[in-house]
């Protein structure tokens, strides 16, 4: 990815965050968590496009988010459990990367 392409993606990401912030004023309260989870996926997407970067855990996390994020429209409880599961997996990964047993 060139600096120009990265600059464009960061700009788009900033615009997403700003419009999502405005949406949080009026939208259903669970859409805030949805936007943040979606933002995590978008950041990973940008990271994936950086040449030479291939993080297996983050790739799997993004795939999981993209597959399951719409569950927020079926059940707040399930979506909350889904976020907790993402956090649990990420903490396990953090410990693994820190050399601590999960």
């Amino acid at each position: 990815m060139t600096d120009k392409e990265l600059n464009r993606e960061i700009f788009d990401y900033i615009l997403f965050l700003l419009t999502a912030a405005r949406g949080c004023v009026d939208e259903p309260h669970m859409y805030g968590p949805l936007r943040l989870v979606d933002a995590a996926s978008r950041i990973i997407g940008t990271y994936q496009r950086v040449k030479g970067v291939d993080d297996e855990f983050l790739n799997r996390l993004k795939q999981l988010i993209d597959e399951k994020k719409y569950i927020v429209m079926e059940s707040e409880d399930e979506f909350t459990r889904f976020i907790d599961e993402l956090i649990a997996q990420s903490v396990d990964e953090m410990k693994r990367r820190s050399g601590v047993k999960a």
């Binding site: 788009d12 615009l15 419009t19 999502a20 949406g23 994020k69």
Partner: peptide, 8 residues
């Protein structure tokens, strides 16, 4: 799409 977080 850039100004529509719901355009997923």
């Amino acid at each position: 799409k850039k100004i529509a977080p719901g355009y997923l």
